[in-house]
């Protein structure tokens, strides 16, 4: 049965559509529209904002400082997505080809951290990466082992171990974002791989292609929609990440969300913050439009 025309049953249509539409309008579109209006305003005194329709805020956003922060956010998000893809793809493969009994549990294993509080996970990682944390302890014992080995073969021992700064730098931000976003990547990849026709892989193997070649030439192209979905689902939140760069980053690892936050809290320049917010939203729209365009290509062919 096809969809019903709304006119054929107006009463029911009103009952199901009005609550949703009113909610979205009042509590989503109106607040967003206000931000949009703010982005064309300017500060007058401490709390007054005049909506003069100025483009000054957008002009300021093209200053070199902000352009580099945008660029850096994109670079970090892209790097995080790439790492998640490389780590996540084999995991998704393993889940897809696991036995009936194991598959749900492996999936659950990936999803449980996704349900765990983001702040708690970030904090757990901070504990581990701190100068006194286990990552440093592990490296120290490796260093000690190497030093011992050098004396064993008659070389000078290594200089004493200095704790590595693993936290409060760009490395920590990328590491933390990968940690947080990995489940986002694995789940859509799994969904795509699960739908794959296995006889195609068998055919490829039968015809003499190795496993690696089969994966690169058969599995990856067929799973492309899932890969694109995974990339988008990871890239978009990574681009707007606030908490990880704030807690794990150093002074030079600010991402765009941190700059926006500063306009609203410390710098108290709401119109400029609003303009930056909308630039970030536009960036998201462009990404999604690119994905939609990609989707259309096979239909044309």
């Amino acid at each position: 049965m096809a969809e019903q025309d709304w006119k054929s049953n107006k009463r029911v249509f009103a009952a199901v559509s009005l609550p949703t539409i009113l909610w979205v309008l009042l509590f989503f579109l109106v607040p967003m529209a206000i931000v949009w209006v703010y982005s064309f305003g300017e500060n007058r005194g401490l709390t007054d904002i005049e909506f003069s329709g100025t483009l000054e805020n957008y002009k300021r956003a093209t200053e070199w400082l902000y352009v580099t922060i945008f660029g850096k956010s994109f670079a970090v998000a892209a790097l995080v997505t790439l790492i998640c893809l490389i780590i996540g793809f084999p995991v998704a493969m393993a889940i897809t080809f696991a036995s009936e009994k194991w598959r749900p549990w492996l999936l659950l294993g990936i999803m449980l951290p996704f349900w765990t509080n983001l702040l708690i996970r970030t904090y757990a990682l901070m504990m581990l990466l701190g100068t006194q944390g286990y990552a440093n302890k592990g490296l120290e014992s490796l260093w000690g082992g190497a030093s011992w080995f050098r004396t064993l073969v008659g070389l000078q021992p290594l200089p004493t171990w200095e704790p590595v700064q693993l936290l409060f730098n760009n490395f920590a931000v990328v590491f933390g974002l990968v940690y947080v976003h990995l489940p986002f990547m694995v789940l859509p990849l799994y969904a795509a791989l699960d739908r794959l026709d296995r006889s195609l892989i068998e055919a490829s193997l039968d015809l003499g292609a190795g496993h690696f070649r089969t994966i690169m030439r058969i599995v990856v192209p067929l799973a492309a929609p899932g890969i694109v979905a995974g990339v988008m689902i990871t890239l978009i939140p990574a681009l707007g990440a606030y908490l990880t760069p704030d807690l794990m980053g150093g002074t030079d690892s600010q991402m765009i969300a941190n700059v926006i936050e500063r306009q609203f809290k410390k710098a108290n320049d709401w119109p400029f913050g609003a303009a930056l917010s909308f630039l970030l939203i536009y960036a998201m729209f462009i990404l999604i439009a690119l994905q939609a365009m990609r989707k259309k290509v096979p239909e044309v062919r």
Binding site: T20, V24, F27, F28, L29, V30, P31, M32, I34, V35, Y38, I236, P237, L239, G240, Y242, A257, I260, E261, F264, W270, G273, A274, S277, F278, L280, I281, M284, I288
Partner: peptide, 20 residues
């Protein structure tokens, strides 16, 4: 529009609710 809140970055929504 209904699925927009999934896509719009948290920081932008936070800012919108702050002003709103």
């Amino acid at each position: 529009t209904i699925s927009l809140p999934i896509i719009v970055p948290e920081i932008c929504m936070g800012v919108a609710f702050l002003i709103f």
